[in-house]
Simulated assay, not measured.
Amino acid sequence: MIQLLAPDGTLRADGEAPLEVTPELCRGLLRDMVLARRFDEEALALQRQGELGLWLQSLGQEAAQVGSMRALRDSDYVFPSYREQAAARCRGITPAELMAQWRGVVHSGWDPARYRFHIYSLVLGTQALHATGYAVGVRLDGADDVVLTYFGDGASSQGDVNEALNWAAVADAPVVFFCQNNQWAISTSTSRQMAAPLHRRAVGFGLESYHVDGNDVLAVHAVTARAAASVRRGGPPVLIEAMTYRMAGHSTSDDPRRYRADAEVEAWRQRDPIARLETLIRARGWAAEEFFEALAAESDRVAAATREACLSMPEPHATAIFEHVTNDENPLVRAQKEWMEAYQKTLA
């Protein structure tokens, strides 16, 4: 497994994924992760207070998402799963856009074309096929953009992901498959769902593969940069298996204490991606105390802005559910909308 930054903050060398580690790079990655976690924590609080219908935390997976996103070009297209808010923030997607779907005020929160970041896919693994199809289009257009798609270890057991791996290899699609192996597919551990690691299975499909410490933001950044460069040059599709851990439940409807031991969670807490990078920065003297104070203040502002954005979202009209059901106006949908409008008037 490729690792550049050990859990104790010690910087190591790895010839398979070299990286020029600079103070600027480390400070930027730390800022991205800290702010993403603070947003995630505030969204969880809002859900617990009844302001969001559901929330899926990215707690513990910030390095996998930030490290990979910062290795891409702005023009590269990303297909997420449903807990990639750290990745989404790297593309500038706002707190309001990230929460709108979970507050139930829109069908999806943002314009994917604007951010080159697709809307969330709640059906396990379907985004892998979407990404592959889009990547085939990129190749046919003659562009040199790369497509990256995120999915979890649970989704890797779905047919859609395996079909996408095979299709991408056969079509030579410029796509990077990024598996955040967070050890648990809801309550099913990886040991109960796969007999061989995913990065080894990928080779059988004809993909290049990497196995990386997903809590090491520097290693993830290096591996993703190398994979994207290879694909961009015309190399085969790549699969990256990033070993990380879902510190929270699968969602706010899940109680992980029912199926995993506290000792396991504590062991992974010692591998926290934010703590290890901060340790490195402090040990090397790459940031003054003012940097950390300013980052804490910025985190507070992110939390306040997140709460304000959530509570200020306008309530949608009941008939909004009929919008965008079909590309062109459908007579049946129009009739249903008119019935709803008439019914609403009887309640006034």
Score class of each variant (00 low, 15 high):
residue 115 Y to F: 15
residue 69 M to I: 06
residue 346 T to Q: 12
residue 312 S to P: 07
residue 50 G to W: 12
residue 99 M to N: 06
residue 182 N to E: 10
residue 252 T to D: 12
residue 247 M to Y: 13
residue 302 V to Q: 05
residue 235 G to C: 10
residue 103 R to A: 15
residue 53 G to W: 07
residue 189 S to C: 05
residue 166 N to T: 13
residue 195 A to I: 05
residue 54 L to H: 07
residue 213 D to S: 12
residue 339 W to F: 15
residue 7 P to W: 13
residue 26 C to I: 00
residue 203 V to I: 15
residue 334 R to Y: 03
residue 216 D to K: 07
residue 242 A to G: 06
residue 8 D to W: 11
residue 331 P to R: 10
residue 200 R to M: 10
residue 117 F to E: 02
residue 95 P to A: 10
residue 100 A to M: 04
residue 121 S to W: 03
residue 314 P to R: 05
residue 266 E to P: 02
residue 119 I to K: 04
residue 61 Q to W: 04
residue 224 T to D: 03
residue 97 E to Y: 06
residue 232 R to Q: 09
residue 279 T to R: 14
residue 58 S to V: 11
residue 17 A to V: 14
residue 249 G to R: 01
residue 266 E to Y: 00
residue 94 T to L: 11
residue 186 I to T: 13
residue 337 K to N: 12
residue 164 A to I: 09
residue 249 G to I: 02
residue 29 L to D: 00
residue 265 V to C: 04
residue 128 A to P: 00
residue 14 D to R: 05
residue 84 E to Y: 08
residue 111 D to F: 07
residue 214 G to T: 04
residue 133 G to V: 05
residue 79 F to W: 01
residue 277 L to C: 10
residue 188 T to V: 14
residue 277 L to K: 03
residue 104 G to I: 09
residue 78 V to K: 01
residue 289 E to P: 05
residue 263 A to W: 00
residue 202 A to F: 03
residue 161 V to G: 02
residue 44 L to K: 09
residue 105 V to I: 14
residue 214 G to E: 01
residue 221 H to M: 05
residue 294 A to I: 00
residue 244 T to I: 06
residue 133 G to K: 03
residue 345 K to E: 15
residue 277 L to M: 09
residue 39 F to W: 11
residue 225 A to G: 12
residue 273 P to H: 07
residue 278 E to R: 15
residue 187 S to P: 03
residue 114 R to L: 13
residue 130 H to P: 02
residue 227 A to Q: 08
residue 77 Y to S: 02
residue 188 T to S: 08
residue 220 V to I: 10
residue 263 A to Q: 15
residue 319 T to Q: 13
residue 265 V to G: 02
residue 153 D to K: 04
residue 20 E to M: 10
residue 53 G to M: 14
residue 216 D to L: 11
residue 117 F to V: 05
residue 72 L to W: 09
residue 311 L to G: 08
residue 231 V to Q: 01
residue 87 A to L: 09
residue 196 A to G: 00
residue 190 T to V: 15
residue 179 C to P: 00
residue 116 R to P: 05
residue 309 A to I: 06
residue 150 Y to Q: 08
residue 90 C to R: 06
residue 306 T to L: 09
residue 54 L to Q: 07
residue 174 P to S: 11
residue 113 A to M: 04
residue 285 G to W: 11
residue 140 L to E: 13
residue 196 A to Y: 09
residue 208 E to L: 12
residue 70 R to S: 10
residue 163 E to I: 07
residue 27 R to G: 01
residue 140 L to G: 02
residue 308 E to T: 13
residue 149 T to M: 08
residue 342 A to L: 11
residue 172 D to Y: 01
residue 40 D to P: 12
residue 137 G to M: 12
residue 190 T to R: 07
residue 15 G to W: 00
residue 240 I to L: 13
residue 260 R to V: 11
residue 289 E to H: 07
residue 284 R to D: 07
residue 170 V to S: 04
residue 98 L to P: 01
residue 27 R to P: 00
residue 1 M to R: 10
residue 211 H to D: 15
residue 323 E to G: 05
residue 312 S to M: 07
residue 196 A to P: 00
residue 83 R to I: 08
residue 56 L to G: 14
residue 135 A to E: 04
residue 232 R to M: 04
residue 126 T to A: 15
residue 156 S to E: 08
residue 299 S to F: 09
residue 27 R to M: 03
